[in-house]
Design a protein around this nucleic acid. Structure first.
Length: 586
DNA sequence: ATAGGGTTAG
């Protein structure tokens, strides 16, 4: 039953010998004779400092104590110089300098943070060689690293093995790590059952554990269960704190349950738990997403009155809210006011504004801001380029877009999959099918992380350019290579068939997607109905109209317009749609 | 253990 991953293999072979020795083998004769080494380590400000201090240290006689080395490593890790940690560690090994468990765990963690769990596992033999026992921290670090690579199954298998074979007793931190890893990857059910397991066992859930589960439930929109759990933890004598309440408030904001948000605000304040900048930002974000940006600004003023300072997230959220409803002048105010408050706009602030301008087709203003970025000492990133590329294609400035892309290749960040999708979409939009396909063929070979969205751009582009067969061939290839089709991909293919009047094929795809557990949404139905309307197939249109209204979907603007056009040309069609007739009488 | 924000496809 248990799948042995390549990560498990080294681990399993160590287990046989690991508990035979638990004596730490570092020499106590290597003491730190020179005072001030600790302060030297504390004064390390950059990678250079760290490396040169390390080289000083290894030349000292006697050698500094192993703890000094581990402190230096810790400092380097905090500065995120993971690969440097690894190479200095290798140097220590080569020089035969004693190490301890902290250093090894540090190396493991560095590998994990570099997304190299395979290398992290290769550190385990060094524990054995030096007779350093594994502990719960080592394994927790490894589990976190496995999760970071999204290998949920492997992480869970390791955890289960540790428990089942009694290799180490999981503590609250290990449970929290596993549960956090699971919940952040959509496995709320499993997270909840681990909580229930903990309640039965000897390591009881603490406030962190409850908060992880409550947050997961809130993110899923399961507010009722989350609130039940809140009451449960209160009964267990674990009072919720600001984090717990913030998660609940965030969930309620996202559901637009503003009355309950108010209730929880008063509940927490009554318990002397005060909302912080996180809590307020969640409320502000919820309001902005509902288009209530003015209310959001009022909340910001309220938080200032309460002595909670808005941060860059607050400002960016409100700016984005204004951009989304096209109020660029307001967004620009907000932008200026953050500068007044000595909060430097970051690349996100710029991207939000640039995107706002592009969506209003004001590409020149967007470009002006783009130029401002480097003047202000910031740097455009790949998203900045992607936003502008899309904006240029949107207004038909193809030559400009190409030039901009070339400029990016020579001086800017590396293009990513979105860049290429945007480029392909632009080419197809203006009928440059050959150019698009030659780029696609090149990319398909050399790109590792091609996703369904990228293929969808190509399928859509081929369909729109009358190349249905080619599109369908790629579409069929996708399931073959094991790429999971999503509702958009299916809808694109359905639309392709509808555009050619091939309704049997379109309906076939519709059946297939449902059979594969991918359910048609509002856009899917509108695409089909539009297809029938364009061919004046009214009775079939009516069938699907009934089906979609039965599922709670409705016509979008394009569909409505098509229907009006059909009716204008042939008013008698109305008699064929009794549903619309009765609506009209009302 | 909690917050945000930008890009592509129907």
């Amino acid at each position: 039953m248990m799948r042995i991953s390549r990560h498990d293999i080294p681990f399993i072979s160590f287990f046989a010998t690991s508990h035979s020795s638990s004596i730490r083998l570092y020499s106590s004769t290597h003491s730190n004779t020179k005072l001030g080494l600790n302060s030297n380590i504390e004064n390390v400000k950059c990678l250079n400092d760290a490396v040169s201090l390390f080289h000083q240290m290894v030349r000292r006689k006697p050698l500094p104590h192993v703890v000094s080395f581990s402190k230096l490593f810790k400092t380097m890790q905090n500065m995120k110089h993971y690969s440097a940690v690894v190479s200095l560690f290798r140097e220590m090994q080569k020089l035969g300098i004693p190490i301890n468990g902290y250093i090894l765990c540090n190396v493991i963690n560095s590998y994990c943070l570099m997304h190299r769990v395979d290398c992290a596992f290769s550190v385990l033999p060094i524990y054995l060689k030096n007779a350093i026992p594994f502990d719960v921290v080592t394994f927790t670090t490894l589990i976190r690293g496995i999760f970071a690579e999204n290998k949920v199954k492997d992480a869970v298998e390791l955890f289960k093995k540790l428990v089942r074979d009694k290799i180490c007793e999981p503590n609250e931190v290990m449970y929290a790590t596993v549960m956090n890893g699971l919940s952040k990857r959509g496995h709320t059910e499993k997270t909840l059952s681990l909580l229930r397991l903990m309640e039965q066992g000897s390591t009881k859930p603490n406030i962190y554990i409850y908060s992880i589960v409550i947050d997961a439930l809130c993110k899923d929109g399961n507010l009722d269960i989350a609130i039940n759990l809140l009451n449960e933890m209160k009964q267990e004598g674990i009072p919720p704190d600001i984090v717990t309440y913030s998660s609940l408030i965030d969930g309620l904001c996202k559901l637009g349950q503003w009355e309950k948000v108010k209730t929880f605000f008063s509940e927490m304040v009554n318990l002397n738990i005060y909302p912080d900048v996180h809590t307020f930002n969640m409320v502000i974000d919820g309001l902005c997403k509902e288009g209530k940006v003015e209310d959001a600004e009022e909340v910001m003023n309220h938080m200032i009155e309460k002595g909670v300072d808005p941060n860059i997230i607050t400002y960016n959220t409100i700016m984005d809210g204004y951009c989304l409803c096209g109020q660029l002048d307001r967004a620009r105010r907000v932008f200026d006011s953050m500068v007044d408050k000595n909060i430097e706009p970051d690349i996100f602030s710029y991207n939000i504004l640039i995107n706002g301008y592009c969506k209003l087709k004001k590409v020149d203003e967007a470009m002006q801001l783009f130029c401002e970025i480097s003047q202000k000492g910031s740097k455009p990133n790949i998203v900045t380029y992607n936003i502008l590329l899309q904006g240029m294609f949107e207004v038909g400035r193809i030559g400009f877009a190409k030039k901009f892309f070339d400029e990016m290749l020579s001086t800017g960040p590396l293009p990513n999959l979105s860049t290429h999708s945007t480029l392909l979409n632009g080419y197809f939009k203006y009928g440059f099918v050959e150019e698009a396909m030659s780029l696609f063929n090149k990319l398909e070979i050399k790109t590792e992380d091609i996703d369904i969205a990228f293929y969808s751009v190509v399928i859509n582009g081929l369909c729109k350019n009358g190349k249905l067969d080619e599109a369908h061939a790629i579409f069929q290839k996708l399931s073959f290579i094991g790429l999971l089709l999503d509702v958009r991909a299916y809808t694109i293919m359905i639309n392709g068939f509808c555009l050619e009047g091939l309704f049997d094929e379109a309906k076939d795809i519709l059946r297939k997607m449902e059979a594969n557990g991918c359910f048609p949404d509002n856009v899917t139905y509108n695409v089909i109905v539009q297809g029938f309307l364009r061919c004046s197939k009214i009775s079939e249109m009516t069938t699907f109209m009934k089906e979609m209204t039965g599922r709670g979907f409705s016509f979008d603007a394009t569909t409505a317009e098509l229907l009006v056009n059909v009716l204008r040309e042939n008013p008698s069609v109305l008699d064929m749609i009794p549903e619309l007739h009765s609506e009209k009488r009302k």
